[in-house]
Every structure is written in C-alpha cells, then in structure tokens.
Design a protein around this nucleic acid. Structure first.
Lengths: 190, 190
DNA sequence: GTCTATACCCTGATAGAC
DNA sequence: GTCTATCAGGGTATAGAC
C-alpha cells in the first residue's frame, strides 16, 4: 500500500481552483481576473493551473456549470413562489455569490463573451420555472394584459435589479422585503 | 481673418471621442475596451486621444457625466410615474445606451472601479425621484409593509433587470409591457 | 502534477519631434 | 494637435524539464 500522497487529490484541486476562480471573477470581472491571480490564491503558478483547465474560457464555463448544478438543483425545485423571498434572504448572507452573478451576467452581454450562452439559457429556464409557479399559485391575480410569463420576467428582474442596488448601497437595501412586497402586489385582487 | 481650420474643433473632437468611448465600453466593458481601439474609431492614435483625456479613468468619468447630464436632464423631470414606461419604450430604440448602462453599472461593483461612486450616487438619486413620483401618484395603493421607497427600488429594479433579460434574449422581452404591468399592480386596491 | 522558461501580443502612459 | 518612439508591465498560452 502506497504512502499517502504528498499532493492534493486532483478532483479536490480542481474544486479549489473553481472556487478561487468564482471569487476572483466576482471581484474583478472575467477580463479583470488573471489566471496568475487565481492560481496564486490556491498556491499554484499560472502554468500549474493551466494543467487542470486548458484555457481561461474553459475555466469560466466550468465555474458556471458547477455553480448552476449546485445552486439551481438545491434551491429551485422546492416550494412555490414563496421560495423566492427565501432565496433572496439566503443571498443576503452570500455577497460573493450575488456579486459573481451580477458581474458575470452583465459581463456576458459584451462581444464574444464565453458566458453568453450560459446566461441566455439560464434566464429562459428561469422564466419558465417561475411562470409555472405563478400559474400554480392560488393567490395570484394578474392584471389585464399581464401573462404569467410577464409576471415571471418581472419577478426575476426585481431580484436581479435589487441585487445591483444592494451591492452598490453596501447592503442598505432590504431585498427580501421588497421581493415580499412584489409577491403581495401579485396576490391582491383589484 | 484666418483661414478655416484644417483640423476638427477641439470640443467637437472631444464629443466624438466620448461617443466612441461609450460605444466601446458598452461593447466590451471598461477593462475590455482599450484606448487604442477607441482612438481608432475616431481616426486617432492612442496617444492622440490621450491629448484630450489624460487617463483612461478620466475618460470613463467624463463619458458618464456627459450622459447623465443629457439623459437625466431631459427624461426625468417631466411627468409622474407614467414617464417610466415611456422611457423604457424609448430605450427599446437605443440598444447601445441600454447595454452601456447595464454593463458599466455591474462592472462598477468590482474592485476599485472608477465608476463606483457615480453609480452609487445615481441610484440614490433615482430612488428618491421615483419615490416622490410614487407618493404623488393618486392611483397608487401600497400593500402593507411596503414604503414608497420600497416601491421605487422595486420599479427601478424591474427596469434594470428587464434590460438584462432583453439584451440576452436578443430583444425578445416586452420591457414596456412588463413595466406597465408593474405600474398596474401598484395602482390596484386590495 | 507542477515547475521554469519563453513566445508573443496588448496594455496604459510618457517624452519629445513636427 | 497629432504623431513616432519607447517604456515598463501585464496578459494567455506552449514546450519541455523534473
């Protein structure tokens, strides 16, 4: 039986790198975060990092894929519309995560951005999921001319837009309260 | 009397540069847009550009100041809450402008970003202005626990969040309709 | 699996000629 | 007012030793 490895297990290393990359993309955006900086944060050289992820673009894609898998899988399937304020409340405890999505999603609309497809698909799926919640909620009464899809787009927009204001205000905005308010608006009848 | 100048007037040149800079910041973000690229777009070298704006940071600040002056001055003072869907409708005709604000505002939450203060201040002023509109609107009935400031934060968030979805969907989202819907929600009584 | 060395390009900024 | 020349620094990525 061989001695315990001197070095970290490859899968663990990969996870460490993905973690550090997400942090740095959040702090400085995709273009502003260099491979060397990410590598340094896990005690590697830039070239050592490239052993695990052949290109920077590849690294970003894998970061997003991992996060999507973990987050979306755990948070979204449970419950109806009231899961939304719950998620928002959780997010107030995870500034880094909020910032990474805010920065990277806006980043992704720029030219030839590697995360473009990821976010386009993500929002399509998100709108569909939230529209279903809206339709199934017994309390919701939509005003004339507003479809369930419109309401879904609105709710997602509220959450995203609040995150930006929250980040810029240094946490001074009551995200959860406002999202609860938005739900209350949808649930009262004329 | 001297002959007409061979070169462009300095103020006109400055405006040209600011225009090109805004475009390129929108297309590639602040860090992704190089001085050389901006200069090229107005037929200058990078060094020629630096004659007008001593640093890149300075250029960004002036771009934002100019835009803020023009846009905010013209659009915001008129009318009450119904100015909001009107602005959104106008924005569907100005993709570049929408993209520049979406990209730069999110960009600005990253480390040591020169536009950070600009956007922090902008949102504070915006919330205050919209909160006043909410208070003065005769039709608005707020649900329990939602202040005029909360409603303002929500409306601004809806507009910002929709812009991101709109940009990512290739213009497929009906921004104006959803914002009208949000106003309708605020204006119906329980 | 991680390193050193290196190729090659782009960055913002300065100095000084014209 | 705009250029050429140049600087010091950083970027991603490859080749190959250990």
């Amino acid at each position: 039986m061989p001695r315990a490895r001197r070095t970290t297990r490859p899968e663990a290393r990969r996870e460490e790198i993905l973690e550090a990359a997400l942090e740095l993309f959040a702090e400085r955006g995709y273009r502003g975060a260099s491979l060397a900086l990410i590598a340094e944060r896990v005690g590697l050289t830039q070239q050592g990092l490239l052993h695990y992820f052949p290109t920077k673009e590849r690294l970003l894609v894998e970061v997003l894929a991992l996060r999507d898998e973990r987050d979306t899988a755990h948070l979204w399937p449970h419950g109806g519309l009231d899961a939304l304020p719950a998620i928002v409340e959780l997010n107030t405890q995870r500034r880094g995560m909020v910032q990474s999505y805010t920065v990277l999603s806006a980043d992704s609309v720029t030219e030839d951005h590697p995360a473009r497809d990821f976010f386009t698909g993500r929002y399509e799926r998100l709108r569909e999921a939230v529209a279903a919640m809206v339709r199934e909620d017994p309390g919701v009464v939509l005003p004339e001319g507003m479809s369930a899809e419109d309401a879904a787009a609105m709710l997602i927009a509220v959450m995203d837009g609040l995150q930006l204001q929250w980040l810029l205000s240094g946490g001074d905005i009551d995200m959860t309260g406002v999202v609860r308010g938005a739900l209350a608006l949808l649930r009262r009848s004329p």
